[in-house]
Design a protein around this nucleic acid. Structure first.
Length: 490
RNA sequence: AGCGGAUUGGCGCAGUUUGGUAGCGCGCCUGGUUUGGGACCAGGAGGUCGCAGGUUCGAAUCCUGUAUCCGCUACCA
Protein backbone atom coordinates (compact mmCIF):
# COMPACT_ATOMS: atom_id res chain seq x y z
CA UNK A 1 0.00 0.00 0.00
CA UNK A 2 2.66 2.46 1.06
CA UNK A 3 4.15 3.55 -2.22
CA UNK A 4 7.80 4.49 -1.95
CA UNK A 5 7.86 8.24 -2.19
CA UNK A 6 11.39 8.34 -0.88
CA UNK A 7 14.15 6.08 -2.20
CA UNK A 8 15.96 4.39 0.67
CA UNK A 9 19.40 5.66 1.62
CA UNK A 10 20.86 2.24 1.06
CA UNK A 11 19.45 1.95 -2.43
CA UNK A 12 20.47 5.37 -3.75
CA UNK A 13 21.77 7.99 -1.34
CA UNK A 14 21.78 10.85 -3.84
CA UNK A 15 18.21 10.11 -4.88
CA UNK A 16 17.18 9.81 -1.24
CA UNK A 17 18.54 13.29 -0.58
CA UNK A 18 16.56 14.76 -3.47
CA UNK A 19 13.42 12.85 -2.51
CA UNK A 20 13.56 14.11 1.08
CA UNK A 21 13.77 17.69 -0.14
CA UNK A 22 10.90 17.20 -2.59
CA UNK A 23 8.68 15.34 -0.12
CA UNK A 24 9.31 17.83 2.67
CA UNK A 25 8.57 20.59 0.17
CA UNK A 26 11.77 22.46 1.06
CA UNK A 27 12.99 23.60 -2.34
CA UNK A 28 13.16 22.79 -6.01
CA UNK A 29 15.55 23.23 -8.88
CA UNK A 30 14.57 26.38 -10.76
CA UNK A 31 15.14 24.82 -14.17
CA UNK A 32 14.58 28.07 -16.02
CA UNK A 33 17.77 29.48 -14.51
CA UNK A 34 20.69 27.09 -14.74
CA UNK A 35 21.97 25.79 -11.46
CA UNK A 36 19.64 27.88 -9.33
CA UNK A 37 17.02 26.85 -6.80
CA UNK A 38 13.75 28.07 -5.42
CA UNK A 39 13.58 27.77 -1.64
CA UNK A 40 9.98 27.09 -0.71
CA UNK A 41 8.24 28.24 2.49
CA UNK A 42 9.06 25.19 4.63
CA UNK A 43 12.71 25.27 3.54
CA UNK A 44 13.02 29.00 3.95
CA UNK A 45 11.50 28.81 7.41
CA UNK A 46 14.34 26.51 8.47
CA UNK A 47 16.86 29.00 7.11
CA UNK A 48 15.08 31.78 8.99
CA UNK A 49 15.44 29.85 12.24
CA UNK A 50 19.14 29.44 11.51
CA UNK A 51 19.43 33.14 10.71
CA UNK A 52 17.70 34.18 13.90
CA UNK A 53 20.03 32.20 16.10
CA UNK A 54 23.22 33.08 14.23
CA UNK A 55 22.30 36.75 13.97
CA UNK A 56 21.89 36.90 17.73
CA UNK A 57 25.31 35.28 18.19
CA UNK A 58 26.94 37.71 15.76
CA UNK A 59 25.44 40.68 17.56
CA UNK A 60 26.48 39.30 20.94
CA UNK A 61 30.04 39.24 19.63
CA UNK A 62 29.84 42.88 18.59
CA UNK A 63 28.98 42.72 14.90
CA UNK A 64 26.53 44.93 13.05
CA UNK A 65 24.60 44.18 9.89
CA UNK A 66 25.12 46.00 6.60
CA UNK A 67 24.29 45.78 2.91
CA UNK A 68 26.74 46.15 0.04
CA UNK A 69 26.01 46.15 -3.70
CA UNK A 70 25.20 42.92 -5.50
CA UNK A 71 27.39 44.06 -8.39
CA UNK A 72 31.13 44.50 -8.09
CA UNK A 73 33.35 46.26 -10.65
CA UNK A 74 35.49 43.65 -12.35
CA UNK A 75 38.59 45.68 -11.65
CA UNK A 76 38.04 45.20 -7.89
CA UNK A 77 38.48 41.45 -8.13
CA UNK A 78 41.67 41.87 -10.08
CA UNK A 79 43.31 43.82 -7.28
CA UNK A 80 44.02 40.71 -5.25
CA UNK A 81 45.87 38.24 -7.45
CA UNK A 82 44.99 34.97 -5.69
CA UNK A 83 41.42 36.09 -5.15
CA UNK A 84 40.70 36.73 -8.82
CA UNK A 85 42.45 33.53 -9.83
CA UNK A 86 40.26 31.59 -7.42
CA UNK A 87 36.95 33.16 -8.37
CA UNK A 88 37.29 34.21 -12.02
CA UNK A 89 36.18 30.87 -13.50
CA UNK A 90 32.86 30.95 -11.69
CA UNK A 91 31.81 34.57 -12.12
CA UNK A 92 28.61 35.75 -13.75
CA UNK A 93 29.31 39.09 -15.42
CA UNK A 94 26.98 41.95 -16.27
CA UNK A 95 28.12 43.72 -19.43
CA UNK A 96 24.99 45.63 -20.41
CA UNK A 97 22.59 47.83 -18.48
CA UNK A 98 20.13 50.55 -19.33
CA UNK A 99 20.13 49.46 -22.94
CA UNK A 100 23.84 49.96 -23.59
CA UNK A 101 27.15 48.29 -23.00
CA UNK A 102 28.79 49.25 -19.73
CA UNK A 103 32.08 51.12 -19.65
CA UNK A 104 33.30 48.58 -17.10
CA UNK A 105 31.66 45.22 -16.59
CA UNK A 106 30.35 44.21 -13.18
CA UNK A 107 30.38 40.74 -11.77
CA UNK A 108 27.64 39.47 -9.54
CA UNK A 109 29.30 39.04 -6.14
CA UNK A 110 30.73 35.60 -5.51
CA UNK A 111 31.78 37.00 -2.10
CA UNK A 112 32.29 40.58 -0.99
CA UNK A 113 35.85 40.97 0.30
CA UNK A 114 36.78 43.26 -2.56
CA UNK A 115 33.93 45.73 -2.46
CA UNK A 116 33.96 45.77 1.32
CA UNK A 117 37.72 46.36 1.17
CA UNK A 118 37.04 49.41 -0.96
CA UNK A 119 34.68 50.86 1.62
CA UNK A 120 36.86 49.92 4.54
CA UNK A 121 39.55 52.11 2.98
CA UNK A 122 37.12 55.02 2.99
CA UNK A 123 35.87 54.41 6.51
CA UNK A 124 39.07 53.62 8.35
CA UNK A 125 41.67 56.25 9.20
CA UNK A 126 42.56 55.80 12.82
CA UNK A 127 43.16 52.99 15.27
CA UNK A 128 40.08 54.47 16.93
CA UNK A 129 38.03 53.22 13.96
CA UNK A 130 39.13 49.69 14.77
CA UNK A 131 38.10 47.01 15.18
CA UNK A 132 35.41 47.38 12.52
CA UNK A 133 33.04 44.45 12.83
CA UNK A 134 30.31 43.96 10.25
CA UNK A 135 28.20 41.23 8.77
CA UNK A 136 25.98 40.99 5.71
CA UNK A 137 23.11 38.57 5.01
CA UNK A 138 23.10 38.24 1.26
CA UNK A 139 22.78 36.18 -1.84
CA UNK A 140 25.88 35.41 -3.88
CA UNK A 141 26.45 33.76 -7.23
CA UNK A 142 29.07 31.25 -8.26
CA UNK A 143 28.61 29.65 -11.66
CA UNK A 144 29.23 26.07 -10.60
CA UNK A 145 29.28 23.34 -13.19
CA UNK A 146 27.32 20.80 -11.22
CA UNK A 147 24.27 21.51 -9.08
CA UNK A 148 23.24 19.78 -5.89
CA UNK A 149 20.34 21.49 -4.25
CA UNK A 150 21.32 23.33 -1.04
CA UNK A 151 24.88 21.97 -1.32
CA UNK A 152 26.04 23.62 -4.50
CA UNK A 153 23.84 25.95 -6.51
CA UNK A 154 24.60 28.91 -8.76
CA UNK A 155 22.98 31.30 -6.33
CA UNK A 156 22.80 30.78 -2.60
CA UNK A 157 22.06 32.65 0.58
CA UNK A 158 24.67 33.18 3.22
CA UNK A 159 26.09 35.55 5.71
CA UNK A 160 29.54 36.99 5.34
CA UNK A 161 31.25 38.63 8.27
CA UNK A 162 34.03 41.09 7.49
CA UNK A 163 36.24 42.64 10.11
CA UNK A 164 39.28 44.89 10.25
CA UNK A 165 41.75 45.01 13.14
CA UNK A 166 44.85 46.91 14.14
CA UNK A 167 46.95 43.84 14.93
CA UNK A 168 47.35 40.40 13.46
CA UNK A 169 46.90 38.89 16.90
CA UNK A 170 43.51 40.54 17.31
CA UNK A 171 42.43 39.40 13.84
CA UNK A 172 43.48 35.84 14.62
CA UNK A 173 41.43 35.92 17.81
CA UNK A 174 38.43 37.05 15.76
CA UNK A 175 38.93 34.21 13.28
CA UNK A 176 39.02 31.73 16.17
CA UNK A 177 36.08 33.33 17.97
CA UNK A 178 33.80 33.12 14.94
CA UNK A 179 34.79 29.55 14.22
CA UNK A 180 33.72 28.75 17.76
CA UNK A 181 30.41 30.53 17.18
CA UNK A 182 29.86 28.24 14.20
CA UNK A 183 30.91 25.16 16.12
CA UNK A 184 28.58 26.00 19.01
CA UNK A 185 25.70 26.72 16.65
CA UNK A 186 26.24 23.43 14.83
CA UNK A 187 26.37 21.48 18.08
CA UNK A 188 23.74 23.23 20.17
CA UNK A 189 21.21 24.23 17.52
CA UNK A 190 21.72 21.92 14.55
CA UNK A 191 22.56 18.95 16.83
CA UNK A 192 25.49 18.31 14.54
CA UNK A 193 28.98 17.59 15.84
CA UNK A 194 31.73 19.09 13.70
CA UNK A 195 35.49 18.89 13.53
CA UNK A 196 37.30 22.22 13.77
CA UNK A 197 40.51 22.52 11.85
CA UNK A 198 42.82 24.41 9.54
CA UNK A 199 42.54 24.09 5.77
CA UNK A 200 45.61 23.06 3.81
CA UNK A 201 47.19 25.62 1.47
CA UNK A 202 45.47 23.85 -1.39
CA UNK A 203 42.00 24.14 0.16
CA UNK A 204 42.19 27.56 1.74
CA UNK A 205 40.16 30.59 0.66
CA UNK A 206 41.55 32.45 -2.33
CA UNK A 207 43.45 35.38 -0.84
CA UNK A 208 43.60 34.20 2.77
CA UNK A 209 46.65 33.49 4.92
CA UNK A 210 44.76 30.80 6.77
CA UNK A 211 41.28 29.28 6.63
CA UNK A 212 39.64 27.62 9.61
CA UNK A 213 36.75 25.27 8.96
CA UNK A 214 34.06 23.22 10.62
CA UNK A 215 33.63 19.87 8.91
CA UNK A 216 30.54 17.72 9.35
CA UNK A 217 30.21 14.04 8.53
CA UNK A 218 27.14 13.00 6.57
CA UNK A 219 25.38 9.65 6.81
CA UNK A 220 27.26 8.26 3.82
CA UNK A 221 30.59 9.03 5.45
CA UNK A 222 31.33 12.01 3.24
CA UNK A 223 32.41 15.32 4.68
CA UNK A 224 30.64 18.60 4.22
CA UNK A 225 32.42 21.89 4.82
CA UNK A 226 29.84 23.68 6.94
CA UNK A 227 31.47 26.99 7.70
CA UNK A 228 34.75 28.81 7.28
CA UNK A 229 36.59 31.61 9.04
CA UNK A 230 39.48 33.26 7.25
CA UNK A 231 42.55 35.13 8.38
CA UNK A 232 43.01 37.50 5.43
CA UNK A 233 46.17 39.01 6.87
CA UNK A 234 46.93 42.33 5.17
CA UNK A 235 46.28 40.98 1.66
CA UNK A 236 43.06 42.85 1.06
CA UNK A 237 44.26 45.81 3.12
CA UNK A 238 47.15 46.19 0.70
CA UNK A 239 45.01 45.56 -2.37
CA UNK A 240 42.46 48.20 -1.35
CA UNK A 241 44.75 50.50 0.56
CA UNK A 242 42.98 50.07 3.86
CA UNK A 243 45.29 51.88 6.27
CA UNK A 244 45.10 53.46 9.68
CA UNK A 245 47.35 55.48 11.95
CA UNK A 246 48.26 53.59 15.10
CA UNK A 247 48.76 55.09 18.54
CA UNK A 248 52.34 55.98 17.66
CA UNK A 249 51.15 57.89 14.59
CA UNK A 250 52.53 55.30 12.21
CA UNK A 251 50.37 54.35 9.23
CA UNK A 252 49.84 50.62 8.69
CA UNK A 253 47.56 48.30 6.76
CA UNK A 254 44.65 46.77 8.64
CA UNK A 255 44.42 43.07 9.41
CA UNK A 256 41.19 41.60 8.10
CA UNK A 257 39.04 38.52 8.59
CA UNK A 258 36.00 37.11 6.88
CA UNK A 259 33.74 34.24 7.81
CA UNK A 260 30.57 32.68 6.47
CA UNK A 261 27.96 29.99 6.51
CA UNK A 262 25.37 29.41 3.82
CA UNK A 263 22.10 27.70 3.01
CA UNK A 264 24.33 24.66 2.56
CA UNK A 265 23.65 24.18 6.27
CA UNK A 266 20.11 23.12 5.33
CA UNK A 267 21.68 20.33 3.27
CA UNK A 268 23.92 19.43 6.20
CA UNK A 269 20.89 19.25 8.46
CA UNK A 270 19.12 16.90 6.08
CA UNK A 271 22.07 14.57 5.61
CA UNK A 272 22.84 14.48 9.32
CA UNK A 273 19.45 13.62 10.77
CA UNK A 274 16.89 12.55 8.19
CA UNK A 275 15.84 8.97 7.49
CA UNK A 276 14.01 6.88 4.90
CA UNK A 277 10.68 8.30 6.11
CA UNK A 278 11.79 11.83 5.26
CA UNK A 279 13.04 14.93 6.98
CA UNK A 280 14.01 14.94 10.64
CA UNK A 281 14.44 18.35 12.24
CA UNK A 282 15.97 19.32 15.56
CA UNK A 283 13.35 21.23 17.56
CA UNK A 284 15.54 24.32 17.73
CA UNK A 285 15.28 24.71 13.95
CA UNK A 286 11.89 23.16 13.27
CA UNK A 287 9.44 25.72 11.84
CA UNK A 288 6.72 23.66 13.51
CA UNK A 289 7.51 21.99 16.84
CA UNK A 290 4.19 20.29 17.31
CA UNK A 291 1.41 19.40 14.92
CA UNK A 292 -1.98 18.59 16.37
CA UNK A 293 -4.11 16.16 14.39
CA UNK A 294 -7.76 16.16 15.36
CA UNK A 295 -9.70 12.90 15.02
CA UNK A 296 -13.47 12.65 14.84
CA UNK A 297 -16.35 10.84 13.19
CA UNK A 298 -19.51 12.82 13.68
CA UNK A 299 -20.04 16.55 13.35
CA UNK A 300 -20.63 16.98 17.09
CA UNK A 301 -17.35 15.23 17.77
CA UNK A 302 -15.64 17.38 15.20
CA UNK A 303 -16.66 20.62 16.87
CA UNK A 304 -15.65 19.46 20.33
CA UNK A 305 -12.35 18.00 19.14
CA UNK A 306 -11.38 21.07 17.14
CA UNK A 307 -12.24 23.31 20.02
CA UNK A 308 -9.97 21.32 22.33
CA UNK A 309 -7.22 21.14 19.70
CA UNK A 310 -7.26 24.90 19.22
CA UNK A 311 -7.31 25.54 22.93
CA UNK A 312 -4.33 23.25 23.46
CA UNK A 313 -2.50 24.86 20.54
CA UNK A 314 -3.09 28.27 22.09
CA UNK A 315 -1.75 27.11 25.44
CA UNK A 316 1.34 25.60 23.86
CA UNK A 317 1.98 28.73 21.82
CA UNK A 318 1.75 30.75 24.99
CA UNK A 319 4.56 28.52 26.26
CA UNK A 320 6.66 29.61 23.28
CA UNK A 321 6.10 26.58 21.07
CA UNK A 322 5.43 26.68 17.35
CA UNK A 323 2.22 24.74 16.90
CA UNK A 324 0.00 23.91 13.93
CA UNK A 325 -3.48 22.39 14.07
CA UNK A 326 -4.11 20.29 10.97
CA UNK A 327 -7.85 20.76 10.61
CA UNK A 328 -7.98 19.88 6.92
CA UNK A 329 -11.10 17.96 6.00
CA UNK A 330 -11.37 15.08 3.60
CA UNK A 331 -8.04 13.69 4.69
CA UNK A 332 -7.75 10.74 7.04
CA UNK A 333 -5.52 11.10 10.09
CA UNK A 334 -3.07 8.51 8.77
CA UNK A 335 -2.42 10.55 5.67
CA UNK A 336 -1.73 13.59 7.82
CA UNK A 337 0.67 11.60 10.00
CA UNK A 338 2.75 10.59 7.01
CA UNK A 339 2.79 14.09 5.59
CA UNK A 340 4.01 15.75 8.78
CA UNK A 341 6.59 13.02 9.28
CA UNK A 342 7.95 13.64 5.78
CA UNK A 343 8.19 17.31 6.71
CA UNK A 344 10.19 16.56 9.82
CA UNK A 345 7.89 17.91 12.52
CA UNK A 346 9.46 16.64 15.78
CA UNK A 347 6.26 15.92 17.70
CA UNK A 348 2.66 15.09 16.91
CA UNK A 349 -0.31 15.23 19.22
CA UNK A 350 -3.45 13.32 18.31
CA UNK A 351 -6.70 14.31 19.90
CA UNK A 352 -10.02 12.54 19.48
CA UNK A 353 -13.21 11.78 21.42
CA UNK A 354 -11.46 9.26 23.67
CA UNK A 355 -8.90 11.91 24.62
CA UNK A 356 -11.55 14.51 25.37
CA UNK A 357 -13.04 12.00 27.76
CA UNK A 358 -9.68 11.40 29.46
CA UNK A 359 -8.53 15.05 29.26
CA UNK A 360 -5.40 13.87 27.50
CA UNK A 361 -3.69 13.62 24.11
CA UNK A 362 -1.70 10.92 22.33
CA UNK A 363 1.87 12.04 21.66
CA UNK A 364 4.18 10.61 19.04
CA UNK A 365 7.75 11.70 18.38
CA UNK A 366 9.25 11.83 14.86
CA UNK A 367 11.74 9.12 15.79
CA UNK A 368 9.53 6.76 17.79
CA UNK A 369 10.44 3.20 18.58
CA UNK A 370 8.13 0.53 17.16
CA UNK A 371 6.30 -2.00 19.30
CA UNK A 372 6.36 -5.77 18.68
CA UNK A 373 3.62 -5.37 16.08
CA UNK A 374 5.57 -2.72 14.20
CA UNK A 375 3.43 0.17 15.30
CA UNK A 376 5.07 3.36 16.53
CA UNK A 377 5.05 3.87 20.25
CA UNK A 378 2.78 6.69 21.39
CA UNK A 379 2.43 8.21 24.79
CA UNK A 380 -0.61 9.44 26.64
CA UNK A 381 -0.14 12.95 28.03
CA UNK A 382 -2.58 14.75 30.30
CA UNK A 383 -3.80 18.23 29.43
CA UNK A 384 -2.56 19.39 32.75
CA UNK A 385 1.03 20.64 32.49
CA UNK A 386 1.09 19.70 28.82
CA UNK A 387 3.40 22.55 27.83
CA UNK A 388 6.01 21.46 30.35
CA UNK A 389 5.80 17.82 29.28
CA UNK A 390 5.98 18.69 25.58
CA UNK A 391 8.94 20.97 26.25
CA UNK A 392 10.76 18.19 28.08
CA UNK A 393 10.23 15.80 25.20
CA UNK A 394 11.39 18.32 22.61
CA UNK A 395 14.52 18.99 24.66
CA UNK A 396 15.13 15.26 24.89
CA UNK A 397 14.56 14.94 21.14
CA UNK A 398 17.12 17.67 20.45
CA UNK A 399 19.60 15.78 22.63
CA UNK A 400 18.72 12.46 21.01
CA UNK A 401 19.52 13.86 17.59
CA UNK A 402 22.88 15.10 18.76
CA UNK A 403 23.69 11.79 20.42
CA UNK A 404 22.71 9.90 17.27
CA UNK A 405 24.77 12.19 15.07
CA UNK A 406 27.77 11.88 17.38
CA UNK A 407 27.45 8.10 17.40
CA UNK A 408 27.27 8.17 13.62
CA UNK A 409 30.43 10.21 13.46
CA UNK A 410 32.24 7.90 15.87
CA UNK A 411 31.17 4.87 13.88
CA UNK A 412 32.36 6.59 10.71
CA UNK A 413 35.73 7.68 12.08
CA UNK A 414 38.96 5.70 11.72
CA UNK A 415 42.54 6.27 12.75
CA UNK A 416 44.70 4.75 10.07
CA UNK A 417 48.46 4.24 9.78
CA UNK A 418 48.97 2.21 6.61
CA UNK A 419 48.25 2.94 2.98
CA UNK A 420 46.35 -0.35 2.72
CA UNK A 421 43.95 0.65 5.49
CA UNK A 422 43.67 4.10 3.98
CA UNK A 423 42.70 2.94 0.51
CA UNK A 424 40.35 0.33 1.98
CA UNK A 425 38.44 3.09 3.79
CA UNK A 426 37.82 4.88 0.48
CA UNK A 427 37.33 1.89 -1.77
CA UNK A 428 34.62 2.33 -4.40
CA UNK A 429 32.05 4.81 -3.17
CA UNK A 430 32.94 4.33 0.49
CA UNK A 431 33.96 7.23 2.66
CA UNK A 432 34.73 7.87 6.30
CA UNK A 433 36.44 10.41 8.53
CA UNK A 434 39.97 9.05 8.38
CA UNK A 435 42.74 10.46 10.53
CA UNK A 436 46.13 9.72 9.03
CA UNK A 437 49.62 11.17 8.96
CA UNK A 438 50.50 13.50 6.09
CA UNK A 439 53.85 14.98 5.16
CA UNK A 440 52.46 18.50 4.81
CA UNK A 441 52.97 18.93 1.06
CA UNK A 442 50.35 19.86 -1.52
CA UNK A 443 51.95 17.32 -3.83
CA UNK A 444 51.15 14.46 -1.46
CA UNK A 445 47.69 15.84 -0.75
CA UNK A 446 46.90 15.79 -4.47
CA UNK A 447 48.45 12.36 -4.95
CA UNK A 448 46.22 10.99 -2.20
CA UNK A 449 43.18 12.61 -3.79
CA UNK A 450 44.13 11.23 -7.16
CA UNK A 451 44.50 7.71 -5.79
CA UNK A 452 41.47 7.59 -3.48
CA UNK A 453 39.24 10.65 -4.17
CA UNK A 454 39.71 11.48 -0.50
CA UNK A 455 40.45 15.13 0.19
CA UNK A 456 42.31 16.67 3.08
CA UNK A 457 39.50 18.20 5.06
CA UNK A 458 41.57 19.88 7.74
CA UNK A 459 44.41 19.76 10.19
CA UNK A 460 42.46 19.35 13.43
CA UNK A 461 42.79 22.10 16.01
CA UNK A 462 43.99 21.20 19.51
CA UNK A 463 41.40 19.05 21.28
CA UNK A 464 39.87 17.85 18.00
CA UNK A 465 40.43 14.39 16.61
CA UNK A 466 42.83 11.81 18.05
CA UNK A 467 45.66 12.72 20.42
CA UNK A 468 48.45 14.54 18.64
CA UNK A 469 51.49 12.39 17.96
CA UNK A 470 54.26 12.35 15.40
CA UNK A 471 54.42 9.68 12.73
CA UNK A 472 55.05 8.91 9.11
CA UNK A 473 52.98 10.05 6.15
CA UNK A 474 50.53 7.38 5.12
CA UNK A 475 51.42 7.93 1.47
CA UNK A 476 55.11 8.86 1.36
CA UNK A 477 56.48 7.72 4.71
CA UNK A 478 57.96 11.17 5.28
CA UNK A 479 57.80 12.68 8.78
CA UNK A 480 54.46 14.06 9.99
CA UNK A 481 53.78 16.20 13.03
CA UNK A 482 50.21 15.01 13.56
CA UNK A 483 47.37 13.11 11.94
CA UNK A 484 45.04 15.10 9.71
CA UNK A 485 41.47 14.50 8.59
CA UNK A 486 40.71 12.97 5.21
CA UNK A 487 37.33 12.22 3.66
CA UNK A 488 35.52 12.32 0.38
CA UNK A 489 33.46 15.45 0.27
CA UNK A 490 30.44 17.18 -1.17
C1' A B 1 33.46 21.57 -19.16
C1' G B 2 34.00 15.83 -20.74
C1' C B 3 31.27 11.11 -21.16
C1' G B 4 26.48 8.81 -20.58
C1' G B 5 21.06 9.05 -19.62
C1' A B 6 16.65 11.97 -19.68
C1' U B 7 12.77 15.90 -21.00
C1' U B 8 5.14 13.68 -22.92
C1' G B 9 -1.31 17.35 -18.00
C1' G B 10 0.93 19.17 -11.03
C1' C B 11 4.06 14.32 -10.10
C1' G B 12 5.66 9.39 -11.89
C1' C B 13 5.54 6.90 -16.47
C1' A B 14 3.86 4.24 -21.39
C1' G B 15 3.78 5.44 -26.52
C1' U B 16 9.34 6.62 -30.39
C1' U B 17 12.22 0.71 -32.87
C1' U B 18 8.16 0.33 -37.73
C1' G B 19 5.65 8.54 -38.80
C1' G B 20 -1.15 8.57 -39.18
C1' U B 21 -2.41 13.55 -34.67
C1' A B 22 -1.77 11.09 -27.09
C1' G B 23 -2.78 7.12 -22.87
C1' C B 24 -2.17 5.04 -17.69
C1' G B 25 -1.39 5.60 -12.28
C1' C B 26 -1.20 9.19 -8.52
C1' G B 27 -2.70 14.10 -7.56
C1' C B 28 -6.54 18.02 -8.56
C1' C B 29 -12.12 19.78 -8.88
C1' U B 30 -17.64 18.58 -7.66
C1' G B 31 -21.12 15.55 -4.88
C1' G B 32 -21.79 11.67 -1.40
C1' U B 33 -20.10 8.13 2.14
C1' U B 34 -15.68 8.14 5.38
C1' U B 35 -11.88 9.71 9.36
C1' G B 36 -7.41 6.44 16.14
C1' G B 37 -1.33 4.97 10.59
C1' G B 38 -1.30 6.60 3.39
C1' A B 39 -10.18 5.92 2.40
C1' C B 40 -14.08 4.65 -1.24
C1' C B 41 -17.90 5.48 -5.07
C1' A B 42 -19.73 8.52 -9.04
C1' G B 43 -18.94 12.54 -12.23
C1' G B 44 -15.27 16.18 -14.13
C1' A B 45 -11.10 19.56 -15.48
C1' G B 46 -6.26 19.61 -17.24
C1' G B 47 -1.20 18.22 -22.45
C1' U B 48 1.18 23.64 -28.83
C1' C B 49 4.81 15.85 -26.27
C1' G B 50 11.56 21.21 -23.42
C1' C B 51 12.56 24.97 -27.36
C1' A B 52 13.95 26.32 -32.62
C1' G B 53 14.62 24.78 -37.42
C1' G B 54 14.33 20.79 -41.13
C1' U B 55 12.41 16.17 -43.86
C1' U B 56 7.28 14.58 -45.03
C1' C B 57 0.69 14.75 -47.59
C1' G B 58 1.29 14.05 -42.25
C1' A B 59 6.20 14.32 -36.70
C1' A B 60 5.79 12.91 -29.54
C1' U B 61 8.09 9.43 -33.17
C1' C B 62 13.11 10.74 -38.29
C1' C B 63 17.35 14.70 -38.93
C1' U B 64 20.11 19.25 -37.14
C1' G B 65 20.84 22.76 -33.46
C1' U B 66 19.87 24.39 -28.58
C1' A B 67 18.15 24.68 -23.30
C1' U B 68 17.49 22.31 -18.78
C1' C B 69 17.77 18.20 -15.45
C1' C B 70 20.03 13.43 -13.61
C1' G B 71 24.62 10.10 -12.99
C1' C B 72 30.07 9.74 -13.07
C1' U B 73 34.47 12.93 -13.68
C1' A B 74 36.37 17.75 -12.92
C1' C B 75 35.38 22.84 -10.06
C1' C B 76 33.46 24.78 -5.53
C1' A B 77 29.95 27.30 0.45
Amino acid sequence: MAEARIKSREEDYAQWYQDVIAQADLAEVAGVVKGCMVIKPHGYAIWEEMQKDLDRRFKETGHKNTMFPLLIPMSFLEKEAEHVEGFAPELAVVTHAGGKELEEAYCIRPTSETIIGHFFSKWIDSHRDLPLLINQWANVMRWELRTRIFLRTGEFLWQEGHTAHSTHQEAKEEVQRMLEVYRDFARDVMAMPVVCGIKSANERFAGALETLTIEGIMQDGKALQCGTSHDLGQNFGKAFDVTFQNEEGVRDFVWQTSWGVSTRLVGALIMTHSDDDGLVLPPKLAPIHVVIVPIYRKDEERDAVLEAANRIAGDLRADGLRVEVDSRTGMKPGAKYYEWERKGVPMRLEIGPRDLEAKAVMAKMRLAESDERGRPVKENLAWENLGVEVGKRLDAFQQLLYDRALAMREAGTQVVDTWEEFTAAFEGTKSAFVYAHWDGTTETELAIKDATKATLRCVPLPGEGPAVEEGKCVKTGNPSAQRVLFAKNY
